[in-house]
Design a protein around this nucleic acid. Structure first.
Lengths: 228, 228
DNA sequence: GTCTATATAGCGATAGAC
DNA sequence: GTCTATCGCTATATAGAC
């Protein structure tokens, strides 16, 4: 290993180390609460390195997210393209679409075996915490994927109004997001959930959400099941 | 109105005003980002008033939550007691239980007509952002209600394993939490959702979740619908 | 109970040496 | 590219007058 190699590696390492540590600390303490001093210290870098590599804390935040989201959304769309939608509501197309949406997230959960993957928890935070600027970036990042998945679901569930279709998609996304990002808190409610592998949870999720999506359209005005 | 009345009211007003403004600013900017300076200024109170009334920022945070959660959980349990579970999976018991869980939240959304109710958005944050101390308080606060609802669902869905029952409850809670707390962000994805009233969303939610809960138990080992 | 003033500490950002 | 040193600002918390 030559001296220039070592230097070049150190440069890359600093940048990547900052992203890794930022991701971890953002997920543990929140974006606002994780200071650049904490991040650079744990990454073995200097405080000024953040501004050299990313310009500002905001720049670091954006790169933390897009580094993970870009390949994730790509994989989702690739799996969606492979789905067989010809069976309509009767076929397994709905299960396939749900799987295409959720599995790429689950797969990444498994990448850090034995531990929580920081980004999964961060994804849970992301919709509630960050600045308006980051929020807009995320909506933009998700909008394309969401529209493509909605197209697929519209094809499979033509009996639903556009509005109800949209809500059902958000029920799916919300149920997934909550269960993935709050695994530690869910574990506090029951040891059983704590003992579930991500794959096992995925199977339960697909069953539940597929059945929810297949439900008949909601009647216009009667409040179903409301106690007298 | 006597002078002592005015003084007494002012004291009460200060405390309540601090809670109201804190709730609003916590929901808008996050707990960490909402400073005591912002809160006391908007509440027309002095910076030191927070420490007089609540001891610390942490004390203020806890009271903001428990002030809303105590009556909310009470109402949920009251509605749960009124549910008719005798019909089993065939009856409307499932719809009634979901309604008992979600309606108290929806009703509070409607209390500030035309605006977002700050607490609904705050509830979305709550699972992801706050300190460990606040988190533990919340789990404790929710555990009793969760166990009671799980008892009801266990009665209605005896064919489910304890583990799958637990997960389905979290899918329900997550879907509800996400859609309620991220209404503004959901609106960015589609104008249709932005135009839905809370009551309309509740009907869609009950339809979807009831169907999800009623789904047959997941088979042990086959990954349903996974593309070949 | 409410106020002013201040103590103590941490923050993001930057200038400039190396 | 990395470092030290520091600026300017804000935070929570508290002491003490009224």
């Amino acid at each position: 290993m030559t001296e220039t190699d070592t230097q070049a590696e150190h440069q890359v390492d600093t940048r990547v180390a900052l992203l890794d540590v930022a991701e971890k600390l953002f997920s543990e303490h929140g974006i606002q609460a994780a200071s650049l001093r904490m991040i650079t210290q744990q990454a073995g870098a200097n405080l000024a390195a953040v501004h050299y590599h990313f310009g500002s804390k905001e720049g670091l935040v954006k790169e933390v997210f897009s580094r993970r989201l870009r390949p994730l959304e790509e994989e989702r769309l690739r799996l969606l393209d492979a789905c067989d939608l010809s069976g309509g509501i009767e076929g397994t197309g709905i299960e396939q679409v749900i799987h295409a949406f959720v599995a790429p997230v689950i797969r990444r959960l498994r990448e850090s075996p034995g531990e929580e993957h920081p980004f999964a928890q961060l994804m849970g935070r992301v919709f509630n915490e960050p600045s308006e600027e980051v929020k807009s970036m995320l909506v933009q990042e998700f909008k394309l994927t969401a529209d493509r998945f909605l197209d697929a679901l519209r094809l499979l569930l033509p009996h639903l109004s556009e509005k109800e279709l949209m809500w059902r998609f958000h029920f799916l996304a919300g149920g997934m997001g909550h269960t993935l990002s709050c695994r530690k808190m869910i574990a506090k409610f029951s040891d059983l959930c704590a003992g579930s592998s991500p794959e096992e949870m995925l199977r339960y999720l697909v069953t539940f959400m597929a059945s929810g999506l297949r439900a008949p359209a909601t009647a216009g005005s009667d409040l179903q099941g409301e106690p007298a």
